[in-house]
Structures are given as C-alpha cells and as structure tokens.
Design a protein around this nucleic acid. Structure first.
Lengths: 375, 375
DNA sequence: TGCACTTTGGCAACAGCGTTGCGAAAGTAG
DNA sequence: CTACTTTCGCAACGCTGTTGCCAAAGTGCA
C-alpha cells in the first residue's frame, strides 16, 4: 500500500516522487467514485504526461487497486477507457467514542460504509472497560465483514481510527483531561489499542475527525466544522488539510471569549462561547444560542478567511434550520456592513449526519493513501 | 534562479524534484548564515545522501550561489568543508507603504539590509502619486546599490515586494477598500508597478509581510504577529507558512468581536477588538488596551494552538513592556485555569522593529527561492 | 463497403534524478 | 612513518517521468 515519505525531513528522492504521484492518481480515482475517470483526464488534472499516467495506472491495476470499467462515448476517435478505484482493496474502521455511546463503522477505500455497530458505553467506567468495548466491537465488525465476503483478507484492514472529545495529543495518541472525566488524563489510548488490536491505530478529536471526513468527502478549500452537542468544538480545515496546531490542540472554539467580564464558565474564564450558548439552550432559546454561535463563526471566518461554515452535532440536529439560519444571519449582517465583494461565507448543515465523526475517524487511516499525510 | 514548480496542479516530475531539493539546501545554507554548514550536515538535515548533497552543492557553486568558506576542526579524519551562501547572488526590494510614510529596503539573499530609504508620503494623494514615489525610491535604491558595487548586475534584482494596510487581494495584487482611503478600491497596484519597474512585483498586507519576515528570520512553527498602530491587524504563520485564506483576506484580527453588544466600531459591528483597544488608548489606558489585546490573542492561541505571540507596530513600540506584560498576563491566567501542561504561549516583542514590514516585503520575492512558495 | 481521419494508449529508447561502490585526499594518533 | 578515520567526488546504476512512434478502435464521408 502506498504511503507518503513521511519520515524524511524534507529531502525528496525517486521513491517519494513515485509515492506522491501515485497518491495523486489514487485520490482522483477516489474522487471520481463510481463514474470513473479516463487516463487522459487523469493526465490533465495531475499535470503529468499521458504516458506517465499509463504507467502509474498499470501498476495500480496490477496491484488490484484500480480496474478498467467501460468506456466513454467516442469524440471522433478511439473512445477513452474509464478507470475506477477497487473499493474492496482496503478497509479501515472508524470508532466514535462519545460520552455515552460507541459507534464503529467499517469503511472501504472510496468511503462507503460497509458495516456499522452502535452500543451504549460509559466513558466514566474507566479505560479498561472502554478499551475492551472498542476491541469487542471492532472485532465483530471484522468478523461480519469477513463473513459477508467483503473483507476477503485480513490484510485489507489498514487500521482503526478513534475519535473522541478532546483535548488530547494526536501525535502521541495520549488523552488529556477529557472534559468531565479527569481519570483519563495521560492515558495512552493509541498504544493500548494498537497492542490489543495488532493493527495501526490513530487517535484524534471528534471535531477533527468529522472535519477530515468532510474534506475527504468533497468539501474543497478551507472550512470549519462546528460541533454542538454536550460541548462546543470546531474542526479546522485550512487549504485542504486539517489544522491541528503546534500541540495538536487547535479547535478550542467553545472557550473563545466573546463577552468581556461575561458570565463565568466552568473552564474558569468568563464569557466563553460555550457558556453563553449552553445558557441560552437551558432557557430554551435556540435562536439566541444560534446567534452566539454566529458571532463566534463570524470571528473565525474573518480571522481565517474560510470558504464555508458547516454545522453538526446532536444539538444542531435537533433544530437544524434554526441554527443554520441563525448563524448565517450573523455572517450575512457582518458581510453586508463590511461590503464583502463575494458576499457572506455560506453556512450549511454537515451532510454526514450522526455518522460523520465515525466515518471521519476511519479516514484518519485512509487519507494518507491518497496523499493527505495527517488528513 | 531556482523556483518551485508552482504551475503544476500537483503532479511532480524530475525537474520539480530537483528544484525542491535545491531549494531545501539553499534554505539550510541561508539559515546557517555566516557560520556556514558542511556537506554532511546538509545531508543529515535534508535526509538526502551525502553524494546527492555533493552534486547539488557543486551546481550551486558553479552558478555562484554558494561557495566554500574554510573548514571545521577535524574529528579524527578529513575535516568537513564549510559551505556558505553567496549573499550578493540575489537581491530584492521591500517597500512598506504606510499611511504617511514610504520605507524601502534593499535586501540580499541572506536577509541583510544593504540599503534603505525613507520618505513621507500621503496615501490619500491618489494612485499615480504613490506609484511614482515607489518607482522613484526603488530606482534610487538600485542606483545606490549599483554605485556601491553591491548590485554588480541588474539581473540580481529579483523583484519588488510591496506591503501596505489591507484589505487587498494578494493573488491578483489588487487593493480593496484600504481603510480610510476608499479611492484605492480596485486599483491593480501589482500590475501598475510591474509595468513601470520591469521586474516582478508582489503585493501583500503589511501584517503578512511582517509575519513572513519573522518566519524567514528564524521563528519556527506556528505563530501570530499582532500589529498595533493606527489600526489593529495580525499576520498568521501556521506550520511555517503564511496563512492568507481563501480570498487572501485572513488576519482580520482587529474586528474580532469580544464584547457582544459592546461599543460600536466604525466597521459597523459592536465590541470589536480594535474599537475597544483604541478607546482604551484614547483614555491613555495602555494596560487596558493590552488586556483587550490579550483576550484576542488568547482566543487566537486557543483556536489555532500556536507556539508564540509576537507584538509589533508603532503603538506597541511606544511602551513595549506594558503591552508584552499585559498580553502575557491574560494568556498566563488562562493557561493556569486550564492547566495547560506546557504552560502559556510565550509573548514577545517582534525583533525586527520599525523595519520589519519592509524587510518582510522583500522576503515575498526571496522566500520562493528557498522553497516557501508564497512565503 | 471502403477509405481517410481522429483519438487513445502502450512499447521502446531516452534524459535526468538520487543511490551505490569505490578510491583519492586530508586529517589524527601512536 | 604507519595505521586509521573521515570527507567527498567519480563512475556505474536503477528508477523516474518524457519523447517518438505505432497499433488499436472508433467516426464520418464517398
């Protein structure tokens, strides 16, 4: 399986060149999905010569990652042959560990969910119990997949991605003080799971996983995924890649202060977005909560100049239109006042729904194959 | 002169591989400065083999970009030969266009300022007058440089970088509504200057230029440069590169809302950082202004997880310690409350001083040579 | 039906990249 | 002076994408 030359401190050699171009072609094949894409189109999109694309796709076909799938209509000459990704050539499991629920999905190379499990879980029950639950559920997903013939070989399982509420250290796979569950502080979740599962494991914040899932799912450029459930967080995608920051702690959207000397927040600060938002929700004031969210989103949009704001999470799902409209109203008003030439940043509902985080967690393993090192 | 393969949509070929590695080596040579760096050290730092480094440095020496400069002490065998960048092999001019002053600097490859001019200018006097002033001052810089023997050939002038208050379109080099001077809206400054000067011109916001200058000057990782003068803005460097966002408008720090329903700002919003900050300054309340700045910086640090906050600009220069201490106090307090394992994000004064923006503007032309495409 | 034309896409030869094997150069240590 | 270590370039090499060329597979017109 192809991986980018991650270890090198920057120097590039021929193998890394090859990996890069192969990943590029694979990414285009994935994006094309079931429609497929022709060799010549691949050449145009990558900037490579047709002959180079022929060589690369020949390798991919020999390794079972790509296949020919029909032809296009002729435009006066030999018709183009359509190439397609072979989705079953690789799988990954994405696990969404929420405060009260575990959701695991089996995902193939092109992002299709081919298996899913949901069980209640208590994050407060301690590390051993939770690790055990993850091992059990991923095991069942693999068993089901093998039985149905989808996971024909164990080797096609690339690894397991785990997404859960932060803060945590993505690089080392170690949890910090998961809000509300101090006993998790310092637990090396990635290594503990990798030892038990025997496959690579990647750990990330739920918001980052969801944002990665959206980026892989076709959302281009820079955007923010705002997640409102028991807490408030954000996943940032800047220029197509998830921005995690120096200590992989970026996205602390909930504790942005937007009211100097405002009401106190459990985090110790005053006037945090999360505190104001949750307070409004407690009063049943959804539009008020949306407006507060909008102020935060508008700040973020101005600071980072993003293309889009995507909303998700359980609370948003309860009244999607109220939140989308409320947040958009704040952004529109600000754009009008500032006379933005292209209008306001659009606000939409994250399309993946309740499965978004688990799906994105699986992409933590799949994305590197397509040339997105850390997503 | 080496340039990265910018036009390609992602596909890499052998020339682009070569450019990449050459730029990498040049960047290390530049970073090493007058001390120089040995071939073996270059090999270790890049991950390339010693032989590859020998070939690359041989090319660089043949083209006059690098030279041998002494040897290190032996460690039991043949002593390492030290290589050094030839600073005079290339120059760039950086122009800082402020509301009332034009500052232009001539900078060589390793960032040393070898010529400087300062003249009063009125941005409100219209485009023609300002363009004329830039043409005149850059011309004099070149004339002085040629006379002193530094600019031995005209070909060593790579181009002119112009930095001025935003907002503007960096990609196209077109100004938007420069705050306070609506007549500039839509003026194609880059093309107008390039036609008159006959060399490449790059236009950017003053804050971005300063941030780029700091990044090139050795500031690693992710940081924010906060500029407080007649207005308030920020330049973001994320993972070593300047973040400009989708429409190159990122860094709108001044109009971050931190007080819902706060005092009105000329921009039309309420409770903007800039409004609060300038109001405090009007009352002579520097610590108050610093505190407001600190709240904004803390929000940004939490959102983006940056390594450092750097302060600059005329107002900061008037009482540097008050601002550094005031901003740091807010960040420290928040870090303590949240129990950040590594402590608070450090706050320091931007080292480049009043010349920072002009120096950074020159780096807009130099950075691509060292593998930083847009800085 | 047959011929001319267009377009696709693979084979073979090629240029250029970093890599490997090896030896000359230039020091230190005894 | 000898033995050893370390640096560093020459030559041969393997592999990359590129170029030149030609067979295959269509369309369109006579």
């Amino acid at each position: 399986m192809y991986r980018t030359n991650a270890a090198a401190p920057g120097g590039a050699n021929l193998p890394s060149l090859r990996s890069h171009n192969t990943a590029l072609v694979l990414d285009l094949l994935r994006t094309a999905g079931a429609d497929g894409i022709s060799r010549l189109e691949l050449a145009e999109r990558t900037g490579l010569t047709p002959q180079a694309v022929s060589k690369i796709t020949a390798r991919l076909r020999a390794e079972g990652l790509a296949t020919e799938a029909g032809r296009r209509a002729s435009t006066g000459g030999k018709p183009r042959t359509v190439l397609r990704l072979v989705p079953d050539a690789g799988h990954a499991i994405g696990v969404h560990l929420d405060r009260d629920e575990l959701r695991a999905v089996l995902v193939d190379l092109d992002g299709t969910v081919t298996g899913e499990r949901r069980v209640p879980v208590d994050l407060g029950a301690g590390a051993d119990a939770v690790v055990e639950a993850v091992v059990r559920e991923t095991g069942r997903l693999v068993a089901d997949g093998t039985e149905s013939g989808r996971l024909s070989e164990v080797r096609t399982l690339l690894g397991v991605g785990v997404a859960l509420p932060g803060p945590l250290d993505h690089d080392r796979g170690v949890l910090h003080r998961v809000t509300g569950f101090p006993e998790w502080d310092g637990f090396p979740l990635r290594d503990a799971l990798a030892r038990r599962l025997g496959v690579p494991v990647v750990v990330d914040k739920d918001t980052n996983a969801a944002a990665l899932g959206l980026a892989v799912g076709g959302e281009r450029g820079s955007f923010v995924y705002v997640h409102l459930a028991t807490g408030l967080g954000a996943g940032l995608v800047l220029g197509g890649t998830v921005h995690r920051g120096a200590r992989t702690g970026a996205g602390e959207f909930g504790h942005q202060v937007v009211q100097l000397d405002g009401p106190p927040c459990p985090c110790g600060n005053r006037g945090c977005l999360e505190a104001l938002c949750l307070a409004a929700l407690d009063h049943g004031d959804l539009p008020g909560a949306a407006r507060v969210l909008g102020v935060g989103a508008a700040n973020l949009a101005a600071l980072l100049d993003i293309d889009r704001v995507l909303l998700g999470g359980r609370t948003v799902a309860r009244a999607p239109e109220v939140f989308v409209r409320g947040v958009a109203a704040v952004l529109d008003a600000r754009a009008r006042r500032e006379g933005a030439p292209d209008g306001a940043v659009p606000v939409t509902l994250a399309p993946a729904g309740a499965r978004g985080v688990a799906h994105g967690a699986a992409q933590l393993l799949l994305a590197p194959i397509f040339g997105h090192p850390n997503g």
